[in-house]
Design a protein around this nucleic acid. Structure first.
Lengths: 254, 254
DNA sequence: AATACACCTTTACGCAACGTCAAAGTCAAC
DNA sequence: GTTGACTTTGACGTTGCGTAAAGGTGTATT
């Protein structure tokens, strides 16, 4: 049985390039070359190619395979055992690599959290700065530096969870206040609920709560146009309504 | 801080060739090139190299690393997760490879066993051939073709273990017989033990045992000079002694 | 006999990430 | 001015082929 490159290639399921390469590196030379320079393979070469491909599937290098198939005295079994050892080493290396990658991913996700945290820290800082810029001077004047610093410090010490809570609380205050405003009664249930929420909200910023300070802040919402503008932006009169509600809540007013 | 290639290389623990290569592929370009054409790296480049080497240790390709370190919007975490998946695939592949190699080694060692088996088969065949050549005709004449064929067939069906047993048994027969011969008494304990061992040995070859056939074989040991020569090779008279012992054992003689 | 088409040949670049010369220029010190 | 350490670019080698390109061969059909 004579085979040309392509015949042998399709028989063995490899490319003709592979056969030419195997010829080039001397691992499988054709039985003979015909008058036109064509490579002609015989049965022996078929068998040998099978052997080569078998070892190739096991991941041995062509150099090793060459040694095995060309030298009949070569201990193929020993070579296989060495190869196995190498593969096992490789797997160990791979395991270490995977472990490192996993660690990095974990750390990276930690880093993402951290970057979120940093973002959060940034938010808080900006919040304080804004507050300071907007109301700082007046508030400081009215309630003293210590109280304001305490408030800021308390804010800075909030966890992200607390920060989310206080943000949600602020939202609740706004909504409850808007509904209460519709009733027109600052002594009513809704208005008092809004006042209570406002107190709760306040405790996130103030180290200690007092009815007097709460009432004072309420009055400031009306006195300071910036506060007024903030609370009145949906419904004019809301700031005044909130002050009344708080004054009632704190017992300053009937 | 300015670094030339070698300074940066030794700082980072890579070769200068690596730095030049990184420049060539655009993954790490020097901060500037001085008037002599020397690459000059700055702090930024040091940091970036650290990053590159970090990802390199995790086994990412330079292409991937390039994408990660050059594009700040690139999702490095996603790349790492994909990389991890690839590594896991690779490990699976390796596992399969190792399993195949192990199987091959096992089969190869099985092949050694098989070649032992083949050798063993060869031994048995030769044993039968020898027997046939040496004693076949007479035995066949005396006991009939069927019995001999049965004996041979039985021998061929022996496992290697059985073969070893029968060989050991033959050795015991010879030794016990030699000791019994010294007593000079074919009716004695040792001689009868030898006769019994001989029977046991015989059952490995004969499909069925009969005292008559046993006695007949014993007589043949004396009649046929080839048998006689075999048993008498250590001590002349042993074949005759064995016959007497067997005849007593089988009850043909007192 | 011309043509088409499948097949064959050699030559050679490309791949990944550098290692390893080689030839030639630069810098600092003696 | 010379040495020695350093730099540059250029180019080949590594593994196992894939993928052209350019050109010759075999065979069947027209």
């Amino acid at each position: 049985m004579d085979y040309t490159v392509q015949k042998l290639a399709s028989l063995a399921g490899v490319s003709t390039r592979t056969l030419r390469y195997y010829d080039e590196v001397g691992i499988l030379k054709p039985a003979r070359i015909n008058s036109s320079g064509y490579r002609i393979y015989g049965q022996q070469e078929v068998d040998r190619l099978q052997q080569i491909l078998f070892y190739r599937e096991l991941g041995l290098s062509l150099d090793h395979i060459k040694a095995i198939v060309t030298d009949p005295n070569f201990d193929g079994n020993k070579a296989l055992k060495e190869h196995r050892q190498q593969l096992i080493e490789k797997r160990k290396q791979l395991d270490r690599l995977i472990a490192n990658v996993e660690k990095t991913i974990a750390a990276s996700e930690g880093r993402i959290n951290m970057s979120n945290k940093e973002k959060f820290e940034g938010f808080k800082k900006r919040l304080i700065e804004d507050n300071e810029k907007k109301y700082g001077k007046e508030v400081r004047e009215k309630y003293g530096d210590e109280k304001v610093d305490q408030s800021n410090a308390k804010l800075m010490n909030m966890t992200q969870e607390q920060y989310e809570e206080v943000t949600a609380l602020a939202e609740q205050v706004t909504q409850t206040l808007a509904e209460a405003f519709k009733t027109g009664n600052p002594a009513g249930e809704l208005a008092q609920k809004a006042a209570d929420l406002h107190r709760k909200w306040l405790t996130y910023y103030w180290k200690e709560y007092s009815k007097e300070a709460h009432a004072g802040l309420a009055q400031m919402y009306v006195d300071d146009e910036r506060f007024t503008a903030y609370y009145d932006k949906e419904q004019p009169g809301t700031a005044e309504f909130l002050r009344d509600a708080i004054l009632i809540y704190t017992g300053q007013k009937q």
